[in-house]
Structures are given as C-alpha cells and as structure tokens.
Design a protein around this nucleic acid. Structure first.
Lengths: 126, 126
DNA sequence: TTCGTTGCAAACATTTTGCAGTTTC
DNA sequence: GAAACTGCAAAATGTTTGCAACGAA
C-alpha cells in the first residue's frame, strides 16, 4: 500500500464514522461534514472511504438501495437492515459472535478471511 | 403484485438460473441467452430478475464488483465470494443451516424475515 | 380486445477518475 | 521539493424507465 500522509479530512471522516451508529453512506458523511468543511467534496469522501477500508480501519457492512454503507466498529458483530426505511442497526450475539470462518470448511476456498451476516426485516419504527 | 402472463423469455431466464451454480449477474444471463434469443434485451433481463425476485422464485445473494448476483436455489444455504475473481460458490453446513432468524432477538426489529451469510476469501483457483 | 411483455434508447444514480492546485512532511 | 491529498467536473458503470410495438389470453 501507498504510504499515507496525515489528512485533516480523512481524520474527520473516520471520527464521524466512529462516533455514529447509523452506518452511513458516503453522501450522509458528506452532508454531515459539509458545514464544518465547506470545501469538502464528495469525491474526497469516496476516496477516503476506500482508503480507510483498505487500511482495515473501516468496513462496508451492506449495500442498501444501491448505496454502500460503512461502519468503523471493527469488533465482530452483525447487522439488521430494515427493508422499508433502510436503517441499519447492530446485532450482537451473546458475548461475542463466533468466528464462523474457523467453523466452516469450504471446498472452493483456499483461504476464508471473513464473513458478513445480515438480517433483513422491518424495524420497530416502520 | 401484478398478474403475470406466460413469457418465454422469463421462463428462459429462470431456467438458466436454475441450471447453473455460478450465481450469475444480469449481464452474464443476457450474454448466455443472446445466442438463442437474438432479440433479447438487457432491460428485459433486469425487469424479469426483479419480477422473479418479487415472486420469491429467485434471490439476490451478493453484490460483487458492483453487480447484483442471483440464485434460484432457494433452500437455505450461504455463499463464499472470492475477493479476487468474484466467483461465488455455495456453502452448506452440516445438514441444513440453522434458521438464525429464530435464534436472534433484535431490539430494533419488529419482524426478522431472513438473513444472508456471506464468506469472503480467496478461492482455490486464484 | 385487453393488458402484460419487450426492444430500444434515453435517463438515472452512485461511484470513479483525470487534472491542476494545495497540503503534508 | 517530492509525494500525498483535494476540489471540481467529466466519465464510467450498473440499473431503471418511457414509449411504441408485440404477444398472450
């Protein structure tokens, strides 16, 4: 990977993701930071999300209505997606979630690195 | 839902999906059927996939490289996605997969209808 | 004849990218 | 000063849609 410099905006994007549990899209992040960073551009948000994802600082948890949604909470947990309003909420199992990657043997896989478990339904507000 | 007529092309799309385990994208389906249906259009493939998905005849199992990928095998199972080549393979647990929707209690959920479990890694051919 | 289905192409929405200027180190 | 970062706008990409023609019942 390419070496990184410090970037005020990348920091802001990352901290915003850390501080929220809404699992935002690029656009939500853009709109949230725009007041404080009037010269922020959407391209920068996209670029930094990809970069942070590459770093392992952040991960994409789902694509809802065609929009990639991100999370900076990297402890193992899964998500519930409301089919109606698109809200994403965290789902924790008792204690921590099992490491399923160690529990499956997949013929076609040389290496199973991670997994993503998503529940779908209707949320209490819909 | 809107009443349906019999449609030769919809049938062909559905049967192609049933006969393959490649979890194809709309474009792959389009290219596969084009020789036999020279006047097939991509829009029709998209329309019918959405329609079949609405019927519950087919489901979207993952989005790989920005492309929705479909499966007509509706028995409960999960998938392995190769991060390099994008190939999707079926993953079956011993016997059948547990119905996790009955095993979780999600505060934010009024109704948990389904779940989707995807493993990521590198396949044996990459 | 009615209404679902389709081809076609234009429209759409999200994401990526090229470039010139700016910031970081 | 070199290399990373950014704004901007254009381009790319996958998907949806309007419409007139077509097909099924």
């Amino acid at each position: 990977m390419r070496t990184q410099n410090y970037s005020r905006k990348r920091q802001a994007i990352y901290e915003l993701l850390l501080s929220t549990d809404t699992h935002p899209s690029a656009e939500w992040i853009y709109n949230s930071l725009k007041p404080q960073y009037p010269d922020l551009s959407l391209g920068t948000v996209y670029r930094n999300l990809k970069l942070l994802e590459g770093n392992g600082a952040v991960r994409s948890v789902a694509v809802v209505d065609g929009c990639e949604r991100y999370d900076a909470k990297m402890t193992r947990h899964s998500h519930f997606v409301c089919k109606k309003c698109g809200k994403i909420t965290d789902v924790f199992f008792t204690e921590t979630m099992p490491d399923l990657t160690e529990k499956v043997y997949i013929d076609a896989a040389k290496d199973v690195e991670e997994y993503n478990l998503i529940f779908y339904g209707i949320c209490t507000e819909c």
